[in-house]
Design a protein around this nucleic acid. Sequence first.
DNA 1: CAAAAATAATAGTATTACTATCATATTTGC
DNA 2: GCAAATATGATAGTAATACTATTATTTTTG
Lengths: 231, 231
Amino acid sequence: MKQLFSGLKIEVNKNLYVKDPESSALGKKIVENSIILIDKIGFENFTFKKLGFEIGSNESSIYRYFENKHKLLLYLTSWYWTWKEYQLVFATSNIEDTEKVLETAINVLTRRIKRDNLTSHIDEIILNKVVVNEFSKSYLTKKVAKEYKESFFEIYNRLILRLKKMILAVNSDYPYAAALASTVLEGGLHQHFLREHFPSLTECNENLSPAQYFNNLVLSTLKHTKNGQKN
Amino acid sequence: MKQLFSGLKIEVNKNLYVKDPESSALGKKIVENSIILIDKIGFENFTFKKLGFEIGSNESSIYRYFENKHKLLLYLTSWYWTWKEYQLVFATSNIEDTEKVLETAINVLTRRIKRDNLTSHIDEIILNKVVVNEFSKSYLTKKVAKEYKESFFEIYNRLILRLKKMILAVNSDYPYAAALASTVLEGGLHQHFLREHFPSLTECNENLSPAQYFNNLVLSTLKHTKNGQKN
DNA sequence: CAAAAATAATAGTATTACTATCATATTTGC
DNA sequence: GCAAATATGATAGTAATACTATTATTTTTG
């Protein structure tokens, strides 16, 4: 897919930051390099002090943008899912055939990332790696319930519900549309992880993308469960 | 399913512990209460000091059993998957029909846990909650490659490959058997998480189990992809 | 150019994730 | 039953983490 809305600003939940990182050069540097550093050393080993060192800035300055590293991770992943939502809406607009819409959606959501020139400071390829490796950690916490109420996972939820609708458009009788949509999103990340680290646990590789697997899975299931029949 | 091999000891990779926790009363207490405490406060907030306080023991004593809390988590999840593997093998033995075998396997691997009297000190229901919430964190680290080589994920891998074989037994033409098997295992945990925390993202609930969803998904896909046809 | 705002530097706190040492129980082998 | 071995407990100490607070220095802008 070509570059879409050049210069368009991706907006995330304002409660995820103390000061909007898009509002200053330092803020952008923090976001840009946090992605690179988290990818490099992993979220557990990532600290604001190390990031400060990387960007030649002070720990205390980073705290003025993000309350803590958990909020920063939520910011980064929200940004990612918002970006994906833009791609999804753009790629599926003006397609008539519901099956083609669904296929396109699955492609957008599970294929390998290509760099987009939407924003100069965020490297979407590296951000995707961060999402694959760290996104689960943003919700597998004791704070989920509270943060869910604060809408910190709103975009991700909305994305799944969009996909759910597309699934139902193909087969309105299918009884597990939300479950299937969430399987595609979560499983999409997981298959990329497996390909990289446990290659014997998936057929996905350089030549066979998770998108192909999920397209086959979703479409065959929907066709088979047509008209109320199960199995 | 009824209790199976009463008194059978579940063995996990010896490199996951310094001293076998099954070899002493304190060791069993550590395992028993670590499950309860991790479930209660979450893995991030869990420390050996807090666990020591809970069991009226000293932090330093716990370090004599486990190198660190990450290894303890690997121990607990390995125990869990070994226990699941026993159940799987037991439940599917002596079934002739390959479809029935697969259906039974999916049930065992994705259904809600029932307490098993296999070991007195481990509460499998709570351990299952820990696995749902924390298992991903055991492999989403920068140490995966190294720990994979040390066979710390061996049982989990083997379980997926067992399921893969069962999938291929139903349909040897299906080209994504490993990917589908890993989707069932990982997705099984994820659907339980969604049901609990993001209920709008899944149809699974008290009455509709993830097992039903995955059985429908897997069997309809395998039937539809029969004889080499895709989609 | 002064005032305001942003950033940097420094210091300090409680907690974490350990390691090391020594003291005290408990077990076991003769 | 007792000594030796082993297990456990208590204490102390270290470097790093995850912050907060304060003050100093730049940079921006009206």
